[in-house]
């Protein structure tokens, strides 16, 4: 039971890959993550660094790019700015098992005491984004922190994220994901379908060709129908994304979007990759 309706600001990090129009619509605040390459450090906010440029350069880069979470000082600064004019901030972040971003934001939020609620999405890219958009909707409708936290929890239980890794080299070079050890000495060329949930990255399928991987991805997506939201992910593979969406036919809900995964995450995945994030309609029941 909430006594008064609070003014709640929803914030997230740039890994969420939320399109600018949606950020604007819900006035969502962004805490950027950083990509360091070729001697520079760039905020991965879609402004400072052109994604197309970055991915064109990526295969050629001699030094593998590194990624960095925002410092807690930066987070503190942005939270203080973000909460101006609001009663409360709910900040939803990239899986804490994959990045220290959520932890740094928690540290940065200490000076705001209980006016900030930090949530570990357990996901990446628009997987975070879907939770953020649901949070914004529920916050506007209810003004209840509790209701938003519950809604995010429900969304999370009805989400799925799968990605086909076109070339394992990038994950291998990044050394970030333990699942890749399964392929460390792989003799065969494999295009695995990864399943990301609760910060864990698991191998859903081992397949050897993109064609078979896409067929499997389609099958996995169809099993989730009916869908409220569908996001198609890709890195420099727009044709693949378009074909996948077309092949899904009536499974595709309105407002389906296709996005290029941001450099922070994309550095580890590499060009050619393709993925989907689903949110089942059932999350509202």
């Amino acid at each position: 039971m909430t006594t008064t309706k609070k003014k709640i600001r929803i914030m997230t990090d740039s890994v969420a890959d939320i399109p600018a129009a949606l950020l604007q619509k819900w006035n969502i605040g962004i805490i950027p993550t950083y990509v360091n390459f070729e001697g520079g450090s760039y905020a991965d906010d879609g402004v400072e660094l052109s994604r197309d440029y970055f991915y064109q350069r990526l295969p050629e880069m001699k030094e593998f790019p590194t990624t960095a979470a925002p410092s807690h000082a930066l987070a503190e600064d942005l939270l203080h700015k973000g909460i101006e004019g609001y009663d409360h901030v709910i900040s939803i972040h990239v899986a804490s098992k994959l990045s220290v971003t959520a932890n740094n934001v928690r540290l940065g939020a200490q000076s705001l005491k209980d006016r900030v609620t930090v949530i570990d999405s357990g996901l990446v890219t628009m997987g975070i984004g879907m939770q953020v958009l649901a949070a914004a909707e529920v916050a506007a409708a209810t003004g209840s922190v509790e209701a938003v936290v519950q809604a995010v929890e429900k969304v999370r239980r009805h989400q799925k994220l799968w990605a086909i890794i076109a070339n394992l080299e990038y994950l291998r070079r990044s050394g970030r994901v333990s699942v890749i050890r399964a392929f460390a000495g792989s003799l065969l060329q494999i295009k695995p379908i990864l399943d990301v949930h609760d910060g864990e990255v698991e191998v859903a399928q081992r397949v050897r060709t993109m064609g078979k991987a896409v067929a499997k991805l389609k099958e996995l997506t169809e099993e989730q129908a009916p869908l409220e939201r569908l996001v198609i992910l890709h890195i420099n593979n727009e044709d693949g994304a378009r074909e996948l969406q077309a092949s899904l036919g009536s499974v595709v809900p309105p407002d389906t979007i296709t996005i290029t995964v941001g450099p922070t995450l994309g550095t580890h995945i590499g060009p050619g990759s393709l993925g989907v994030i689903t949110l089942r309609k059932a999350w509202r029941s």
Binding site: V203, A204, R206, V207, R208
Partner: peptide, 11 residues
């Protein structure tokens, strides 16, 4: 080819 789905399912 048959071992790949086996490896998936085993996990």
């Amino acid at each position: 080819a048959a071992l790949l789905p086996y490896a998936d399912l085993r996990e």
